[in-house]
Design a protein around this nucleic acid. Structure first.
Length: 549
RNA sequence: GCACCCGUAGCUCAACUGGAUAGAGCACCAGCCUACGAAGCUGGGGGUUGCGUGUUCGAAUCACGCCGGGUGCACCA
């Protein structure tokens, strides 16, 4: 419908020889204002030098709209042009929901653009903590949204199993191993304090006894055991949440294939790298940044920036046209350097979208729960899932914009689970499922929704509640597109809540099951459509849509 | 000190990217079950959108300055 109006308005503007403007259609907040509105007259008024209402009138006079699609056009307020849909168009549009069923909502908006979305990317030095949850959920939802809107999505996890952190892990496991054997042995200064380290050490004692007691410089056995345990734990948590990655990209491969030294050489060639104080520096100031940065330490080891630059370049080399990174606010400082580096290598970073999410504070018993991995009492994502459940974890983390500092009150999420927004949505779905069971008993064959659609007369749906719901349901593809355009999954939860609300209101006002079989069929169809949209929306958000609860 | 993010109802957050009367949930008050799920519905109170100046037909949204909170500012990642 928007496309139709856009085309008609564009030619109207041409006919009036008005300048072309970026046409924006909004859904008015107030229903009395119609189904769609545009502010183009307001935007044109200044350029044309006329009062906005006159401009709007001129446009409306020239517009020749198909009465089968648009029932009314009027000018309101300071110069908005409001459109009201013809009911036949609403019904035709809505039938698509039944025809498309589980794929309703999918669109070709993304035009199969090759997209890489990288997130989580926690190194295997410990289990995921609760704070990671926000990123885990955000990325999973966004990846689904992009897939539904026609992007060719690769889900990626980037990790590093070498270097300082892993050395530290190995030392920590070794220390716990010695302690387990009864030796006096101190943990390294910044060692990982979590209890899971003791668990790892314990398995090594069980397997090797005290045969690994002799200090061994590289602690490889301890590091390997630690890495394996941690990665298993991380993957298990992701699996519990139903979050899948297509590619686990090991930073180490960048070294083995020489991609790291390649970047240093290229920087040197372009005078973007120099040696000083025994280290190699990236001349970021030449690219307009605050200060130069070390990319290779005096020990010969690169800092994280260098592999990150090489990694991002590889993403482009692998053919990705859109590169999405999801980071917590604590990593924000690294982004400008990496992007500058990638640009310096000749790649445009216009197609890199970095999504930053703010930190989450978990409150329990009125106090902030500590989450540091080095803290023995770290609150893990597994702990959170165990307390509030998988669906609540998904829904709560995705229902707020990424840029808000979120307070997650665990006590509240548990205690008030009845009035939890995720249940509101799931309840609507279960309620519909229950009605449809009645309908099936009453003899309606819902097994083929496409055929069901063909034999249903939707024009019997004439009340405000029915039409409001119908229009809202038909908006689902647009809602997904809106999320994809803005990279903001939380808007989907807002939309789905509106759907559930519109359904409950309809349900309250009208009986589905009735003697009038024709009317009943129309309303059964409406229920089926609502169930389809809620079900599809839940699938995008990785939330279960229960038949009963 | 510098950079980035945020500040909206008692609390947690929206507001379709500059639009019409700033909206939901929780909490509070008052109603609604002899028919399909009351985990629901209807109504009510609650706001100087942190403060100020500016930009324009129009600002929660943009700019500048304060105030308050968060996150960074490593030869850690």
């Amino acid at each position: 419908m928007k496309d139709y109006l856009r085309a008609e308005l564009t030619s109207a503007l041409q006919a009036l020889s008005y300048p072309a403007v970026d046409l924006i259609f909004d859904k008015p907040k107030v229903a009395a204002h119609g189904d769609l509105t545009t502010n183009c007259a307001l935007m044109l008024a200044k350029q044309v030098g006329a009062n906005p209402r006159q401009v709007a009138q001129a446009i409306v006079d020239v517009l020749k709209l198909d009465a089968a699609r648009i029932a009314a056009v009027d000018i309101a307020g300071p110069g908005f042009i409001n459109f009201r849909f013809a009911e036949t168009a609403v019904f035709d549009n809505a039938k698509k929901i039944l025809v498309e069923g589980p794929t309703f909502g999918r669109s070709a908006f993304g035009a199969k653009r090759k997209t890489n979305i990288e997130w989580v990317s926690a190194n295997p030095t410990g289990p995921l903590h609760a704070g990671h949850g926000r990123q885990v959920i955000l990325g999973a939802a966004l990846a689904n949204i992009l897939e539904w809107t026609g992007f060719d999505v690769t889900r990626e996890y980037y990790f590093n199993n070498a270097g300082n952190q892993m050395r530290n892990l190995g030392e920590s496991v070794y220390a716990r191993y010695r302690q387990e054997l009864g030796d006096e042995y101190l943990m390294p200064e910044n060692g990982y304090q979590g209890d899971y380290i003791k668990g790892i050490a314990h398995t090594i004692v069980e397997e090797f006894g005290d045969s690994k007691r002799a200090p061994d410089d590289d602690k490889e056995l301890f590091t390997k055991h630690g890495e394996q345990w941690c990665f298993d734990a991380i993957k298990k948590t992701l699996a519990t949440l139903g979050v899948k990655h297509d590619v686990f990209y090991n930073e180490d491969s960048l070294y083995k294939t020489g991609k790291i030294t390649e970047v240093v050489e290229e920087f040197k060639k372009r005078d973007l790298a120099y040696e000083a104080e025994g280290a190699v520096w990236f001349r970021a100031t030449a690219l307009g940044l605050e200060s130069d940065r070390v990319i290779v330490k005096s020990t010969g080891e690169p800092t994280y920036r260098l592999p990150d630059i090489a990694y991002h370049r590889e993403k482009f080399r692998r053919g990705f046209e859109l590169v999405i990174d999801i980071f917590g606010a604590d990593h924000i400082a690294t982004i400008p350097d990496v992007l500058a580096g990638v640009r310096a290598l000749g790649y445009s970073t216009d197609n890199v979208k970095v999504i930053i999410h703010q930190m989450v504070a978990f409150l329990k018993g009125g106090a902030i729960v500590k989450m540091s991995k080095r803290d023995a009492n770290g609150y893990t994502l597994d702990d959170l899932i165990a307390e509030v459940g998988v669906d609540a974890v998904h829904y709560f983390f995705v229902m707020r914009g990424a840029n808000t500092q979120l307070d997650f009150d665990i006590d509240l999420a548990k205690q008030q689970s009845d009035s939890n927004p995720v249940y509101y949505l799931q309840y609507a779905h279960a309620r519909i499922a229950s009605i449809l069971r009645f309908a099936a008993e009453a003899g309606f064959d819902l097994s083929d929704s496409k055929r069901f659609a063909e034999t249903t007369n939707l024009t019997l749906l004439s009340s405000k509640e029915e039409l409001d719901l119908l229009k809202l349901l038909a908006d689902f593809p647009a809602a997904l597109k809106n999320c994809a355009e803005s990279y903001e999954p939380h808007r989907l939860t807002l939309y789905l809540r509106e759907v559930a609300e519109a359904f409950h209101r309809f349900y309250h006002e009208h009986r589905v099951i009735s003697e009038d079989k024709t009317l009943m069929q129309s309303r059964v169809a409406l229920c089926l459509m609502a169930k389809t949209v809620i079900g599809n929306g839940c699938a995008v958000l990785n939330v279960h849509a229960p038949e009963k609860m």
